[in-house]
Design a protein around this nucleic acid. Structure first.
Length: 418
RNA sequence: GGAGGGGUGGCCGAGCGGUUAAAGGCACCAGACUGUAAAUCUGGCGGCGUCAGCCUACGCAGGUUCGAAUCCUGCCCCCUCCA
């Protein structure tokens, strides 16, 4: 497969990152010729990124590893407008402070994967230029280069119109804003390539066309496939919601577990996309069959966790999993802990409440149902009574007990004096 | 501006005065089977509650009624057709 000659594109191609590319040959040449600056845009609506963002993060990472310059753009400007695509309930507008906090969170998530130190990756906020825009001058200068005819042809727009779903002028302008972002990055930072999910294709192309008409510069676009699991579900959900990259929001142990529970059919693909193992090694792992494929899943979990949370955390997660799932007392240090005071324990703590406090269930009612359904365990023994109170005798001299919701989700409860 | 249709739980979508915490599907959780997989089958799936109950919910605000998601009034939003 001599499709690409440049290292970056070859890697992306071999690993399955490429869905569409505006001009593969031209881009390949560009990568052979110079140090390329490329960007990916991230929404600013949450304070952390999640696995749904991981594909593009990995692309930026490979970009940096192969000697080029990644730019992460956060949508501080566009977030102020509020994304209207979420149908009813006009979305709550975020305050400046919230946006600021979210930006910091996003940077923190990204910092695990990219080197933002001097001369490395760049973080930019489109508020920097979008805030300054004035309507009439903008329309006169840029609006004349964008035809509605052209924009109506884009898949995202066409689909809406065909299904007779409303498409507001505001949404329509998102494409324009993003097109302008690309141009602005090209001017400010010499950015030549925008990458994103396949749903971003129209927006990316729009930016390329704008830049060509306005500044006579040639930009490139590349999208990655929309990721679903082999059984067709969207990736990256757990009871707790999204699979966050921020360890505060989802512990490394739970992150490890997420990857460990990958479906058989996805293992090879995920290893290529979400780890940096050599392809030969992945091919070997992929060939494992039956129960042996679990080895491959552990490698996937370890490597993915290592990237997001560091090697030490990945080791602890792996060890805790060994202790929990394969018997033989390993170290369960990575399993999330809930602390309770001795005085509270002496009074007796409703076990349903503990499940909720430990984050294993979302409400006491859910914990009750879990117990009724036979999925709740205390130190491995099924809890039969939903009214059970946790008391000092359950600890039997130890400082910790273990709660489990189903086979896979565990938490420790530790007594502290007081 | 005019006429009609509509806003139901995370999503889709029934219900159109009581027996409706609201059919059905998807998603999700648990149990069984396994390999911490998939498929399948079973159960669950608003909150609080030591279980007797209480509270909140069908766009928003009022009203009619013993009783409202269901009827009435006003408001907000969406869709279709006409101008």
């Amino acid at each position: 497969m001599a499709r690409f000659r440049s290292e970056f594109l070859r890697i992306l191609d071999e690993r399955g990152f490429i869905y569409q590319c505006t001009d593969p040959e031209g881009l390949d040449e560009l990568f052979l010729r110079e140090r390329v600056t490329a960007y990916v845009g991230y929404d600013c609506t949450a304070d952390s990124l999640h696995v749904g963002h991981l594909l593009t993060i990995m692309m930026l990472r490979w970009l940096q590893r192969t000697g080029h310059r990644p730019v992460a753009l956060v949508g501080g400007g566009t977030t102020k407008v509020g994304d209207p695509s979420g149908k009813d309930e006009t979305r709550r507008l975020l305050s400046e402070e919230e946006i600021e906090r979210n930006k910091r969170g996003i940077l923190e998530s990204l910092s695990r994967f990219l080197d933002f130190s001097e001369g490395g990756a760049l973080l930019v906020d489109n508020a920097t230029w979008l805030d300054e825009l004035r309507y009439i001058p903008f329309l006169r200068e840029y609006g004349r280069h964008l035809t509605v005819n052209r924009m109506l042809g884009f898949e995202s727009v066409r689909q809406r119109l065909e299904r007779e779903q409303p498409l507001t002028f505001l949404e329509f302008n998102y494409m324009v804003m993003q097109a302008y972002d690309f141009l602005e990055l090209a001017r400010r930072h010499g950015c030549r390539l925008q990458m994103g999910g396949s749903d971003q294709w129209g927006n990316i192309v729009c930016g390329i066309e704008l830049a060509h008409k306005k500044d006579r510069i040639r930009l490139f676009g590349l999208t990655c496939p929309l990721l679903t699991t082999a059984s067709g579900a969207k990736m990256g959900k757990t009871v707790k919601g999204a699979v966050w990259l921020d360890p505060q929001k989802l512990s490394p142990f739970e992150y490890w577990q997420f990857w460990r529970n990958t479906e058989d059919a996805d293992v090879g693909r995920f290893l290529r996309l979400f780890t940096e193992l050599p392809l030969a090694e992945i091919a070997r792992l992929e060939r494992l069959e039956g129960a042996e494929i679990n080895e491959a899943k552990k490698v996937l979990a370890f490597e993915a966790t290592r990237l997001a949370h560091g090697e030490a955390a990945a080791r602890r997660a792996a060890e805790a999993a060994r202790a929990l799932f394969e018997g033989g007392g390993g170290d369960v240090a990575a399993v999330p802990v809930l602390e309770v005071s001795r005085s509270e324990l002496v009074r007796g703590i409703p076990v349903v409440e503990l499940f909720t406090r430990a984050g294993l269930t979302r409400s006491n009612g859910e914990a009750r149902r879990l117990i009724r359904g036979g999925g709740a365990r205390l130190d491995g023994l099924r809890i039969g009574d939903e009214r059970l109170l946790l008391r000092p005798e359950h600890f039997d001299g130890r400082s910790e007990i273990q709660l489990s919701a189903g086979r896979k989700r565990h938490a420790r409860v530790r007594v502290v004096e007081g």
